[in-house]
């Protein structure tokens, strides 16, 4: 298992290099000149040219890319074009906000989505299921920013229960997290329900019932544990989507997170910031996917057995032989 994790982490290196290359290429073909944007409309061409030279924008593509990678290998993410401050320290400051937002939203989606999915599946063909599915469809269909605006309108403007924006206290986190979580909760609910419907028709569920297992245990131990693996995969994928969705939530609720930072950088063509943000987000995503694979293996022994290294397998059979010999000796002793 450890070997597997190590292998996967090593595989991250080419992936990340690929990502930097793609981002660099995309920035190359994106119209807009950071120097012009920085200096404003009235800047003279000479000043723009001077700034371009200073920022190293006039060098050929490969030279710029090589320089970027070189700096990256030395742990230097560069300085922001706009503020001149090092990107790394800025990101360290903003990163926790995004992480908190995404983690809380994800937590909410899982905590509400999975039980709701189980509930819907075990009440199939009844109005309860229909209602849950209708609500889920609605939440999946509406974009997160619409929820954000509607929630602000109700809870912040009309009833004045929660702050309009900002995160001065815990109250400030409620609306952004809920707005982000609603759509994902619905996706998890639908996913859980369809998997559960598949699993509760399986023979081993009937076996469990014939053993006298209570319905609750059947639902949550026997059925859900089998149904949950595809849901976890979805949750992993969602994490990436949420990092993207956080951008909108952060902008609307003015949370000084990574998403907002990236958004500003995109508008001003702040290349080092854009590159670093994408890099960090994809690194995070890759780690989450790895985590998903590990959770898979923990739940499903069939997957786990693929990861066990040869040496461990040999050790296991040795153990078995020993046991057998012990057993044989024991019975002889009698």
């Amino acid at each position: 298992m450890l070997k597997f994790i190590g292998k996967r982490l090593l595989m991250l290196i080419p992936v990340l290099i690929g990502i930097t290359l793609v981002v660099q290429l995309l920035l190359e073909v994106t119209p807009g000149d950071p120097a012009k944007l920085m200096l404003g409309m009235n800047a003279t061409p000479e000043r723009v040219a001077a700034l371009r030279e200073e920022l190293g924008l006039n060098d050929p593509f490969l030279v710029r890319y090589g320089r970027y990678i070189w700096n990256l290998c030395h742990g230097d993410l560069g300085n922001s074009f706009m503020t001149g401050r090092p990107v790394f320290s800025e990101m360290i400051q903003r990163f926790p906000y995004t992480l908190v937002l995404v983690c809380i939203s994800l937590f909410l989606s899982v905590v509400f989505g999975i039980p709701l999915g189980v509930f819907a599946s075990t009440h199939q063909h009844t109005w309860k299921d229909n209602l849950a599915m209708f609500a889920a469809l609605f939440c999946v269909s509406m974009p997160a920013f619409w929820f954000a605006l509607m929630l602000i309108q109700r809870f912040a403007v009309k009833w004045r229960l929660l702050p309009l924006s900002g995160i001065a206290s815990w109250k400030g986190w409620v609306l952004p997290c809920v707005a982000l979580a609603l759509g994902f909760t619905a996706t998890i609910t639908r996913q859980t329900r369809s998997n559960m419907l598949e699993v509760i028709r399986q023979d081993y569920i009937t076996t469990a019932r014939a053993k006298g297992v209570s319905e609750v245990t059947i639902k949550y131990r026997h059925a859900l544990k089998n149904a949950v693996t595809p849901v976890i995969m979805v949750v992993g994928g969602m994490f990436g989507m949420m990092l993207g969705g956080a951008l909108i939530s952060e902008t609307i609720f003015s949370i000084p997170g990574l998403g907002q930072y990236t958004m500003q950088a995109l508008n001003s063509r702040d290349y080092p910031v854009i590159q670093s943000s994408v890099l960090v987000l994809s690194l995070l995503f890759a780690i989450v996917i790895l985590l998903v694979d590990i959770i898979f293996a923990l739940i499903d022994p069939r997957i786990r057995s693929q990861y066990i290294s040869k040496r461990q397998k040999e050790a296991r059979t040795d153990q078995k032989k020993e046991d057998q010999e012990k057993g044989a000796a024991h019975s002889e002793g009698r």
Partner: peptide, 22 residues
């Protein structure tokens, strides 16, 4: 539920699917 598996038990047709795989 107290009777199932205790006083009356059942053996199912297809052993490939009758056991919980995980």
């Amino acid at each position: 539920r107290k009777i199932r598996g205790n006083k009356i038990a059942m053996i199912f047709q297809d052993p490939m699917t009758a056991l919980n795989p995980i």
